[in-house]
Every structure is written in C-alpha cells, then in structure tokens.
Design a protein around this nucleic acid. Structure first.
Length: 779
DNA sequence: AGTGTTCTTCTTTTT
DNA sequence: GAAGAACACT
C-alpha cells in the first residue's frame, strides 16, 4: 500500500547482503569502479542509501581503508545521517572518518594546520550575524556612509567574492562603488586577521589556498583520500568545486551525487553548471540516472515531472514509480490568506482524524512571512504545530552573549565578542567611551582589549574593570570541566543575574541552562572533538592505510605547546556552536504539524503536504521574475515542494493576502498551468483565463464555470471607479493589451485623475491612469 | 546611560 | 504588521 518500500531486486549474483536491497541502477552506482562518476539522483530515488552503501562497500571489500574516504555534505544533518547509517553497515567505529560538511571538514583541516594557514591556534568562527556586525564596524571605522554601504550587502559582496575564490586584489574593479567595496573587503580581512576570526567562506578559501600553495600537503591529502564522495553536488559553488579538484589527485575517484532539478541555492552562489563541468573536466565515464522513485504516488510524480519539464536548462530526467496513481492533487482557491489557512486547518484535521500523524503533515510556503496566518489559525484551534526556521538555538541573543564571554576567554582580541558584551550587562560603558576605545585601537592597530589603557577617565576605569573581569574568569576557570567553565562564566559575567531580574527573562534563563546541557552533551556524546581533532585520525591513517603518508604533512599538525592538546574542549565547543546552529525550538516529543519554507523542506518527506500561497509574485516570487534563470529556480523550488509528498498533495492560492501591512490582490500562480490536468482535482472551480493564459491559450471570453468568489464568502473591498463608463472595483480582474491579465489592487481619485494599481503578475505591480489605460474587465 | 519614539524595510539562506 | 535601527529625550 505504501509506495516507499523498494522492490527487492535480485542481487544474489553478488551474494553480498549490503547490496541486497538495491535496484539495478542503484547497484550499478554503488559498485562502480574507482573512477570519477556522476549520479543523477532524482527526488526520493534513494540517494543517501547509494552514497552510504557505496562507502560501506568500498571499505568492506578492502578497496579503501576508512581513513581513505572523504564524504562531503552541505548540512550537518546529512552528515550525521550518513554516519549513523554507515555505523549500522560497518563493524568499525565511523566517528573518526572524514565525513562532514564542507565547512566542518575545512575546520578540521585548519585546526590541524593552523600554523601553515597563518591562523592563531584558537581561531574563532564568525557566523553570518557576526560577519555583518564585523563588516559594520569596518564601515564605521572607514567613516563611510552606512546608507550607501549597507553592511548586510557588503557582507554579501565579501562572501560572494570569497566563494568565487577572489581575494580583494583579485576582484576586478570597474566602477567607483566596487573600488570602495574592495577597500572595505581588504579592511575587513585585516580586521579578521588581527582578531583571529574567520567567516564561513574563509574556512573554505583558506583550505583551498593552503592546498593549492603547499605541494607536500596537497600530495599528502591527495594520496590519502582515494575516494571522495559528494552529496547534493548541484549546490556546490565555484570555490567548493575548485576545492574538490585540489583534493582529487591523480588516481582518485570523485563520486558526485546530485539532482540539477533540485538546485535551489543559485541565489547563494551555487552553480548547477558544476555538474556538466564535472562531467567534462573529470572525463566522467559513468553517468547513472536514478529515476525510480520510492516515495510518492503517480499523480504526485506526474505533477512534478510535468512542471519541471517546463525548464529548459536541464540534464533531463523523469521520475517514475510503480506505486499507482494514488489520490489526485487537490487544488483550492481561497478568498483570503485567512480563509486559506482555515481550509488547510480543516483538511489537516480531517487527515488527522483519518489516522495521519500530525508530524506527517507539512505546510509549506515560499517565504517566512506567510507562516503567521497559518500559525495563528492553528494556535487558535489548539492544534500543536512546529515552525522550522527563525531563530535557532545558538543564534539567540542570550546564547550569543554567553558565547561571547566564552570566546573572550579563548581569545580576548576577538573584538566582535568584546563589543557584544563589554557593556552587557551594563557597566557604565557608553557609546562615547567605546568610540574613544575604538579610535585608540584603530590608530595603534591593536585589539580593543589591548587598547583600554588609552582611554582616560571614568570610562577608562570601567573598561579596565571589564578586562580584569575577563582575566579573572579565565584564571578562575583554568582546569575546570567545560560545564564548570560555562556555569562560572554565566554567574561571574552577571548574565544570569541580569536575566533573573528581567521581566521576560525566564525563558532566557532556561535557554542559558540549556546551553550548559548542550555543552555537557557535547562533551559526553561527541567525545568533544569531532569537528576539531585531526591528529589522532591522521595517525590512524598512517597506521591503517597504505603506510606512506609523508611525514612532512603530519609534522605540520601543531598541538598546544603546554598541554599537548590539539584543541581544548572549550574551543571545540565554540566551534561546534558556530558551525552547527542547533535545532530550532525543538518541542520534541509532541506530535505536531510541521510548518516551514520550501527551502527548509528540501531533503524531507511527509505523507501529506500542503503548498500554500501559490500566487504570482509570491510563488514564483516577484523578485525572481526579472530574469529567466530566476524563474527556472522558482520552478525547481516548486518541484522540490511537490516531491516532498508521499501520499497526498494539496495546492492552494488566495485572491487576497496581507503583505507588508497591506492587502494585496494576487492572481493564480502560472505553475498551475504547468501541471497535468489529469492529476489534479479542483476543490474550488478552476476559473479560465486567470494567471495561466499564455495569451493565446485558454480563452477568457468563454464563460467560466463559476465566478471564483461568488461561491465562497466574498470579502473583497467593493470600491468602484469608472473609465469609459466601465465599472471597476478592487479585486476585479482586468485585461490590458500590453500587460495581459491583472488584478486591481487599489483605486484612487476620480474622473480624469482616477488611477488604479494593478497586479499584473509577471509584469509586476503597476499604477495606471484610467483616463489613458484601456482595461477590459474579465469575468 | 538608558529608554521611548519614529522610520525603514520586507525572498529563499544548508554553513 | 513587526522587527530592527536610528534618533530624541530624560
């Protein structure tokens, strides 16, 4: 009955139990010879299984030692899952294997080779927030206008440059603006270096450059990692691709698994083109397509296949199933976002009554802002739900404060952390004092911590007291366990007292307690060093593997001179906190409906999926419509959304929606017209000529079955204006010779002055003068 | 130095 | 509509 039990294909020929449950394509992929290979793995085709089974098979058949395998993923979750599955397949400890995220592995690499990489041993990692605030400081220090150089955008520029492999001197400067941006980039780099911090992109770029420039090191690692496996290859950016090229020495095998149709991070620099580049540049002989889907019923797959066939830039792939058509995809049109939420609620309740666990019901949307209505509807109905996204554990303010103190223990020159907590809780250190301090630090080229002596007066005394506090905490925690260190710092910093006295502080206090727990769990479960300890593993590699990793590389791994530790538990924990933002509000245990953006849903699957807000301008999003690639990415996003569903899929859109505090009138998403009619069931009548019509197609002259909102309670603001005696009202759909169909959003003025704001979907929102514009009402 | 008030912005975001 | 930042006030 359920479609996701794979057919046991006869693999008895091999007689290997590892390979028993693979279909022929999967089996072929898993047992490919040790050459470069590209696996095009469609949604739900058993991609993770292929990856893990391949590793297990390689190790089990003695083709490679566990230390000779490197497997790269994008998310911690995927890495963890791979390790877990592998652990059940192989009778060896898998923890030390080089399986992790790009950033995690780079961190491991840089912890081992910090000296060669030109980093302090206890370098800290800036998360995205920290990076923006670091950039903001640079911009302020350079006396630049924050309006013109928006910190967030500049941070984006810097990260983007790094992901292209470009240092400031490599960025080609065409205009004045870019020249300035490069200047900021350079100053930012100097600042990071001075403070001993690296951002996410830097982890990769440093590793890349070190591998590129140090032949001995490169040869060592190329020799070591005979098999490199890459998950979600379609999401790699240029730097990651170049990085892989460096690690893939002669004679190595790169086994890349990806799905070009699920590439939804191009906006963040992912290059789908890496897949075809890989095929060409690595002379890939084996391309295997996994098209058999074990997840969804036929109607859902038909919808996905048909939709994605509208994309032109594809490698070409079609999902198929043997599970039968299943239920039709249900489509609902609501009059308002509120009504839409209400409908979702009722359907979800029905599903629950019929036996679907709430956790198997997912409500997806394009942007986070849409979750509010859904949340309040579920909340008012008393239905348990869980929202993904939003603030994650290690991103919470109180947690970041605590971490900042801890980071100062490791590295007092970390100005980002210094600024975050120097006056929190307040210690009489105001903006003026800090300005003086920053000036002093700037002119002397030293850190804030090092510059307190330069500030005179009361402010200076307070600063000195803060420094003394940090020093005292460091002294007091020497030799303590991680748990004790954190407990001491929470107390001594005054954070705990601060939140104890705060009205809203209870939850924050609980979170601080949770931090202690997280640290405790980190120490016990993880053996604390999974991200950090490189030396023991490399030693193992020397022992287990082929016997000849060059000593030169190992000698470059530098332990702490005093203790011989590779990294302290505290440093390891701080790394963990930066690299793994932690789960959101894990209200674990309760059976709850799952709410998330489509992006967040990637890689997940549910029995029942609702995709809401399918409206022009929202999904596809208006900002993505300007260019062709943007639209194709939106379509892939929709494809990802559809393929999350196992048994039932619901699509909905609404005529009106509160957005940015005002009611917007939207037309149906064009994606509806790209779905196969036979797979759909329209709960509300489909209205001709809406959203879809590519002009020639569907005549809107023909009588629609039922006006969309006459059946449902109409809650459209009925304002009226005229042009040529034609009555218009807000919410009315009209046809314009140039812009096609649109929906009237606003009406203003009267007579010759009358204007209308009209949502033309792909042509955007436009103001038209009604005395000029020729509009024909539709409907 | 801390708090209250207006002004601005508003996709997605694995690390 | 709500969060975050800049500004003004006490």
């Amino acid at each position: 009955m359920t479609p996701h039990t794979p057919d046991p294909v006869d693999a008895s020929a091999s007689g290997n139990p590892l390979l028993r449950h693979l279909n022929p394509e999967q089996l072929a992929a898993v047992t490919l010879p040790a050459r470069h290979a590209l696996i095009l793995a469609g949604a739900g085709s058993g991609k993770t299984r292929v990856l893990t089974t391949r590793i297990a098979w390689l190790v089990q058949t003695g083709q490679v030692s566990p230390a000779g395998v490197m497997a790269v993923t994008f998310t911690n979750k995927a890495a963890k899952e791979m390790l877990t599955r592998l652990g059940t397949m192989l009778p060896i400890p898998v923890r030390g294997m080089w399986i992790g995220t790009f950033h995690g592995l780079c961190n491991r690499f840089l912890r081992a080779h910090w000296k060669l990489a030109g980093l302090p041993q206890s370098f800290q990692i800036l998360d995205a927030q920290d990076q923006v605030s670091a950039v903001r400081r640079v911009i302020k220090a350079m006396n630049l206008d924050e309006e013109r150089y928006v910190p967030k955008q500049v941070a984006w520029f810097i990260a983007g440059s790094k992901e292209e492999g470009l240092r400031p001197r490599d960025v080609s400067v065409r205009d004045e603006q870019t020249r300035k941006l490069v200047e900021i980039y350079q100053a930012y780099e100097d600042q990071c270096q001075r403070e001993g911090v690296v951002d996410f992109a830097e982890l990769l770029l440093r590793t890349y450059e070190l591998m590129r420039d140090n032949a001995a090191l490169r040869e060592h690692y190329q020799h070591r990692f005979r098999h490199i496996l890459v998950d979600e290859f379609q999401d790699t950016n240029r730097l990651q691709y170049a990085w892989l090229k460096l690690f893939a020495g002669p004679g190595n095998s790169v086994f890349a698994v990806g799905d070009d149709d699920q590439s939804i991070y191009a906006f963040r620099g992912a290059q789908v083109g890496n897949m075809s580049d890989f095929e060409r540049e690595f002379h890939v002989e084996h391309v295997i397509k996994l098209e058999r889907n074990y997840r969804s019923y036929g109607n859902i797959l038909d919808a996905a296949n048909e939709l994605i066939s509208h994309n032109r830039r594809r490698l070409g792939k079609n999902l198929r199933t043997e599970a039968g058509p299943g239920e039709p995809v249900r489509v609902y049109e609501a009059t308002s976002d509120f009504a839409e939420a209400q409908w979702v609620l009722e359907e979800a309740q029905q599903l629950h009554r019929e036996g679907t666990p709430r956790s198997e019901i997912a409500i997806l949307y394009r942007s986070n802002a849409q979750s509010r209505v859904l949340e309040s509807t579920l909340f008012n109905a008393g239905i348990p739900y869980r929202v993904y996204g939003g603030l994650r554990f290690f991103e919470r303010a109180e947690i970041k404060h605590a971490l900042a103190y801890l980071r100062l223990l490791e590295n007092p020159n970390d100005d980002t952390s210094y600024l975050r907590v120097v006056n929190f809780p307040t210690r009489g250190i105001g903006a003026r004092t800090l300005e003086q301090l920053q000036d002093a630090a700037r002119t002397s080229g030293r850190s804030l911590y090092q510059s307190v002596g330069a500030v005179a007066g009361k402010g200076g005394a307070n600063l000195a007291a803060f420094n003394a506090l940090v020093d005292a905490m460091r002294e007091a925690t020497r030799g303590l366990t991680l748990r004790e260190i954190i407990e001491h710092v929470l107390e001594a910093s005054g954070l705990q007292d601060y939140y104890r006295n705060e009205k809203e502080g209870r939850e924050r206090l609980e979170n601080l307690d949770e931090l202690v727990n997280a640290a405790e769990a980190f120490v016990t479960q993880e053996g604390f060093g999974k991200d950090a300890v490189a030396l023991p593993i490399d030693e193992q590699a020397g022992a287990i593997a082929d016997g000849d990793p060059p000593a030169v590389a190992l000698a470059d791994i530098v332990p702490d001179a005093e203790t011989g530790e590779i990294i302290s538990p505290l440093a390891a924990f701080l790394t963990h906190a930066a690299l793994e933002a932690g789960d959101n509000q894990a209200q674990a245990g309760q059976d709850a409906i799952q709410l998330m953006t489509v992006h967040a849903a990637k890689g997940l699957e549910f029995d029942c999926v609702f995709i809401t807000g399918l409206e022009e301008g929202l999904f596809p999003h208006e900002n993505a419509l300007s260019d062709f690639d943007g639209l194709e990415e939106e379509r892939r996003l929709m494809y990802v959304a559809i393929t999350r569903a196992r048994k039932r899929l619901y699509l909905s859109h609404s005529q009106t929606r509160m957005l940015h505090g005002q009611t917007r009138y939207n037309i149906r998403s064009r994606f509806f017209d790209e779905l196969p009619e036979h797979a759909l069931k329209w709960i509300t009548p489909k209205v001709q000529g809406f959203g879809g019509g590519r002009g020639a197609q569907s005549g809107w002259g023909s009588a629609p079955a039922t006006p969309p909102w006459s059946a449902a309670p109409a809650k459209i603001e009925p304002r009226v204006a005229t042009s040529d005696g034609v009555a218009l009202r807000v919410g009315q759909s009209v046809f314009h010779n140039k812009f096609g169909e649109g929906m009237i959003v606003t009406l203003e003025g009267s007579g010759n002055d009358a204007r209308a704001q009209i949502n033309f979907g792909r042509h955007g929102l436009k103001w038209l003068a009604l005395s000029v514009a020729k509009l024909t009402p539709i409907e």
